[in-house]
Amino acid sequence: MKKYLAALSVLLMIATPVVSQASPEEDLKNFRAYFKDRFKDVPVEDYINGVYAIDQASREQWEQYEEFPPYEIYISKGEEIFNKKFANGKSFASCFPNYKKGIKQNYPYFDEASGQVVTMEGDINKCLTDNGEEAFKWQKGKIAYVGAYIAYLSRGKTINVKTPSTPAALAAYNKGKQHFYAKRGQLNMSCADCHYNNPGNKIRADILSPALGHPSGFPVYRNSWASSDAGDGMGTLHRRYGGCNKQVRAKPFKPQSDEYKALEYFHTYMSNGLKLNGPSLRK
């Protein structure tokens, strides 16, 4: 018995992360190789389905829900808002001329001029304020609906975050990487603890999802976001980041803060080459 337990604890020790100083390309390669090795039967393109890529029972349930997807009406609402004229007569199309072809695959990107990571949500609100309109709130509601519409038109496009190469872009990337691997909160857990070291394992009755593919399906409709307290189910990626941080009893950062934009940059870059499939449905 002791022998088994000793072997077990050695296995668990090996599975701990090391934050390396590797280049983004090397990070991406290692990230991919790790998941490929961990879930040998899961094709890489299936990771866009989150936990449903690695757990058959949850997948079957999810596929049933997907027959009448609860996010569909929010795509329509998003379309309506997208096409509505601003007071100046323009509309969102003036800011996103290629929206019909799919544009979400290029987000986030690093803008050298401003020294900032630019997200889709950031550009949605920039479009509003540039046109004299009031910005949407960041986490749910209209921003998630318009995001869902843009994401829907981008379905099937390949995530194509440009590899950070300038010092400023690399600094943002490394900030995000640091966030991903750093322990935080009273519970002292990193993103990686659950979604890199333990995907497929259960935390109580919930199966932890793999970090690879996470950003592909946002904005999402989460059943746990559909209640009188939480809202209508829809939310952005940064809303989810805040929720994760709260779950480990850490103070969440603000949506669209430099911290979360940097995290999105790293997190999405790790999924480069996968297909977009948002909006999507999650538990």
Partner: peptide
């Protein structure tokens, strides 16, 4: 503890950590 460990008498345990059994020998 059940979030991560199987414990006799607990329901829906997680499995991130080892089951809590034979604790006196461990």
């Amino acid at each position: 503890c059940l979030a991560c460990h199987d414990i006799a008498g607990g329901s829906l345990p997680g499995n991130i950590g080892p089951p809590l059994v034979a604790m006196k020998s461990r």
